[in-house]
Design a binder for these strands. Structure first.
Lengths: 155, 155
DNA sequence: CCGACTATTTGCAAGTTACACCTAGCATTA
DNA sequence: TAATGCTAGGTGTAACTTGCAAATAGTCGG
């Protein structure tokens, strides 16, 4: 799904979350937070800030941003108006509704739980990765245990 | 995407991560960890343990588990053999390869980074949710305001 | 034989993502 | 004037994951 990002192939110390695939971008809370923080934003603004706020290294795709904004508006979480008061193309400016504020509070609770679980998972992965690494001068696991019955198309 | 889970509508204090949608299950690291921890597992075993290890409350769907196992095998992260030594239907038993061990180490690094980012996001969401909650007897945001010209030079 | 449990696999609808591409306003430069 | 580049919003599509349901099988108890 994610095929590259600004970090791709740059050797920034450790594998990139984008190369691992399978990570959501948490676009909704990131964007709700951006709107709540500024009171009023347009999509392009979010796209420029999102790189720093995003959970993974890929930032948020502009397509995702604009579609998420429309989805949030359809759900009543934000309302928008067109701002033509400044030069340049018109901007669609968004503000949170009370429902959107409530949604952000819900996200805060959910994220707290998810973060805790993820922290535990991370800890366990690190422990497992380390415990085997010490005993890994030889192949960590006897690969090739009579794999005999591997019929089934094998993917 | 996720429509229910065992927690659905049970009022366990706070909204369920499943109701928020948009959360990946981190199936791959959870499963790699399960395999690494036991040395040898089959899919059904993972399905039964996964509820406790999963990052969200939904656990891991058995379809996801079996498909992920095949994908991991196709990528050389695990190898399988059929175990018919015990009564009941044959079980496909998986062990990690050295490449799979390496993948787990990579996941450990990625998860560490993601956890840190997620923690920051969580913290910011909580702060935003709280700071406005105190001032939210009246509608949280006057919709349509032109707030103090958040001019965000942006570049 | 029938159901219950174990165990694996597949089909499908729904949803998200990454990328490419498009429209359009305005400013600078040749 | 034309070309170029930045700002700003939007759409189309392929690839992928997920959740749920259903199919297939082996074994055991009644």
């Amino acid at each position: 799904m994610p095929r590259r990002c600004h970090r791709y192939g740059q050797g920034n110390g450790g594998p990139c979350s984008c190369e691992m695939g399978n990570l959501y971008r948490f676009a909704e809370p990131v964007m709700l937070l951006a709107i709540a923080g500024r009171g009023e934003v347009h999509g392009y603004q979010i796209a420029q800030e999102a790189e720093g706020m995003a959970v993974t290294h890929a930032g948020l795709d502009s397509g995702v941003i604009y579609r998420t904004l429309r989805r949030l508006e359809a759900a009543g979480r934000v309302v928008s108006r067109w701002d033509t008061s400044r030069p340049g193309p018109a901007r669609r400016v968004y503000v949170l509704t009370e429902s959107g504020m409530q949604h952000l509070r819900e996200w805060a609770q959910v994220l707290e739980a998810v973060t805790a679980s993820l922290q535990a998972l991370t800890h366990n992965c690190q422990k497992a990765a380390q415990s085997r690494r010490s005993a890994a001068t030889r192949p960590a696991l006897p690969v090739g245990v009579s794999t005999s019955r591997n019929r089934m198309g094998a993917g």
